[in-house]
């Protein structure tokens, strides 16, 4: 599969970022092809969440370039907002709009950003809620749902913008174990349908079964970037071997 020449959708070149004295991203290069599922793993503090957040500029970078479908991402303003709409994001803490119903959460951005008619956007929102199995909860508020349900709404909300790619920043880390699978199932389905995805996660099962590539990060650098099969069976670097031995022991 990786021999296919994929059209590069997301490209990061020489990206550096500091938090004060801490160098969180060190000369990171990453290319994600259209339709690819890239799972980013690594110990905490390795910069993987920061990497995910820089892709749609929720984090600014100190140097380096980011391009989306060949177009460079501007630093701020209306043009950035337009490009951000092309990259959906799913957060660890769901971040649903607390004052709006589930349906309104999903339909809001298409109306505000894409200029869709309200009834049209709500019709589409219902389809998406049906797809993530939550149509019967459309009129509830986020606080009335479980964590797993909220995260599925968040995925539907991101999909409503018909993005070219989806970023997942530890989407299951705040969930109870029995809710993790319902979220992963939705993600597996998206991967099968050919959605371009960058997933920061600790779910090694998902990485093995859904990823085209595994990117292993440590200390702000990409240490390995390989197929899941190769990475999990024969990691090259000491850091990766050490990391895998710790998480796979249990």
């Amino acid at each position: 599969m990786e021999t296919l020449p994929l059209e590069p959708l997301i490209e990061l070149r020489g990206v550096n970022k500091h938090y004060g004295a801490l160098h969180v991203l060190k000369d990171v290069d990453l290319t994600v092809g259209r339709g690819e599922v890239v799972v980013v793993i690594g110990p905490s503090g390795s910069g993987k969440s920061t990497l995910c957040r820089t892709i749609n500029r929720l984090e600014t970078v100190d140097s380096g370039t980011l391009t989306l479908a060949g177009r460079p991402l501007p630093a701020e303003g209306r043009e950035l907002a337009r490009l951000r709409a092309e990259v959906g994001m799913v957060f660890q803490s769901f971040n649903l709009f607390a004052h709006k119903t589930v349906l309104a959460n999903v339909a809001l951005a298409p109306v505000k950003v894409r200029g869709r008619k309200k009834d049209e956007a709500e019709h589409r929102a219902r389809e998406l809620l049906h797809r993530v199995g939550l149509l019967e909860h459309a009129q509830k508020y986020p606080a009335q749902l479980s964590g797993g349900q909220q995260q599925r709404v968040a995925i539907a909300r991101a999909l409503a913008m018909e993005p070219q790619a989806l970023l997942f920043d530890e989407p299951t880390s705040a969930l109870d174990p029995e809710m993790i699978s319902e979220v992963l199932e939705v993600m597996q389905q998206l991967a099968r349908e050919g959605m371009t995805m960058v997933v920061v996660t600790h779910e090694m099962g998902f990485a093995r079964s859904a990823a085209n590539r595994v990117v292993f990060m440590a200390d702000g650098q990409i240490v390995e970037d390989r197929t899941p099969e190769e990475f999990f069976t024969a990691p090259r670097s000491e850091r990766a071997k050490d990391f895998l031995s710790k998480i796979l022991k249990h």
Binding site: M89, L108, K112, A158
Partner: peptide, 8 residues
């Protein structure tokens, strides 16, 4: 952040 990530 969620609102901005949706392009608002």
């Amino acid at each position: 952040e969620a609102a901005r990530s949706l392009g608002m």
